[in-house]
Amino acid sequence: MLVSFTLCKQTMSLPHKPPGELKSNFFRPRLEKEKVVIIMGATGTGKSRLSIDLATRFPAEIINSDGTRHNDQEDPEEERCGVPHHLLGEISPYTDFTATDFVDMASHAMDSVLSGGRVPIIAGGWNSYIEALVDDEDFQFRSRYKCCFLCVHVAMPVLHQCVSERVDKMVEMGMVDEVRTFFDANANYAVGIRKAIGVPELDRYFRAEPYLDKQQRGKLLQEAIQEIKRNTCKLACRQLEKIHRLRNKKNWKIHMVDATEVFGRRGKDADEAWEKLVAGHSTEIVAEFLYNFSSQKSDPGH
């Protein structure tokens, strides 16, 4: 279960061009590389929200790149703003979904999206899957596709606090009962959704629950929740380290979009900051990438 703050946006007006020019620019000769947008970032930074924002402003569909997001409830239909999603709700939560599986399924999904004259937006936190797709051994991906990499960045101290609040919110919304449906005393926690953060941490609680009184259960549950928070923060650090390696060691041209200020605000102020600093800025980057519109601002990702 994930807490979503997605707000459906109306299609944003792009810089003025004569009628028909956007369409003619978009449907380029097939001799040119197809274009793909890839959204990265640590857990909880708003990758899903940004992918939907962009997919409502450009002719695009979203391809999920998170191997533990197996069910549609994690991105409810009403929060997708009518944007088609691929690799979400298509994978059994009890199977081991490998990077090889992702590359195969994502490749087919990209072909399907592109054949409809739309842009694939790949979004998710499993950077190893994205690396396997982009830097394949035969360089087939790079020879066929041109990528625009976006990374939603939030300063770690701020993100860690938000992770804590987010886990508390998930618990309020029924995370424990949802995870309970996956509990099996003989299960393999290295396969499928059972290896996702939030499932193994609650295992000890579920095993002991029938034998404890109310106070003991509450104490053990709080210990499990704190472990979920710690492991989520550790995951965020690993994800950011991986992105830095791709950018600094492998020279991926990743546009870093700073959302730190957004997470320090609440309500309408947060939405306005998101639009200005994240969605709006990313829209400019993607418009320049897709349609060769000249940006008025310099971008550190270039």
Rank of each mutant, 00 (worst) to 15 (best):
residue 164 S to N: 07
residue 122 I to G: 03
residue 179 V to I: 10
residue 30 R to M: 10
residue 297 K to T: 14
residue 94 Y to D: 08
residue 183 F to V: 06
residue 14 L to A: 13
residue 41 G to F: 14
residue 246 L to W: 04
residue 157 P to A: 01
residue 202 L to S: 01
residue 263 F to M: 11
residue 154 V to P: 00
residue 113 V to M: 02
residue 73 Q to R: 15
residue 286 V to F: 09
residue 215 Q to W: 06
residue 157 P to F: 00
residue 77 E to V: 15
residue 64 N to C: 12
residue 302 H to I: 10
residue 200 P to M: 12
residue 76 P to F: 05
residue 222 Q to P: 04
residue 295 S to P: 02
residue 282 S to R: 04
residue 80 R to K: 08
residue 51 S to I: 07
residue 87 L to A: 03
residue 236 A to T: 09
residue 206 F to T: 04
residue 127 N to T: 12
residue 174 G to L: 07
residue 64 N to P: 04
residue 167 V to D: 00
residue 238 R to W: 09
residue 274 W to G: 06
residue 48 S to K: 09
residue 104 D to N: 08
residue 111 D to Q: 12
residue 58 F to N: 02
residue 58 F to Q: 03
residue 183 F to I: 10
residue 173 M to D: 11
residue 1 M to F: 11
residue 182 F to P: 14
residue 156 M to Q: 14
residue 184 D to P: 01
residue 167 V to C: 00
residue 245 R to E: 13
residue 74 E to I: 08
residue 118 R to C: 01
residue 125 G to W: 01
residue 242 K to C: 12
residue 295 S to E: 01
residue 299 D to F: 08
residue 89 G to Q: 01
residue 269 D to F: 08
residue 206 F to D: 05
residue 123 A to F: 03
residue 37 V to E: 10
residue 15 P to Q: 12
residue 104 D to A: 12
residue 231 N to L: 02
residue 171 V to D: 03
residue 92 S to H: 02
residue 93 P to A: 11
residue 254 I to W: 01
residue 104 D to I: 03
residue 258 D to K: 02
residue 211 Y to H: 15
residue 129 Y to T: 00
residue 16 H to S: 11
residue 211 Y to N: 15
residue 31 L to V: 15
residue 126 W to R: 15
residue 120 P to A: 02
residue 38 I to P: 05
residue 229 K to S: 01
residue 179 V to G: 03
residue 289 F to C: 00
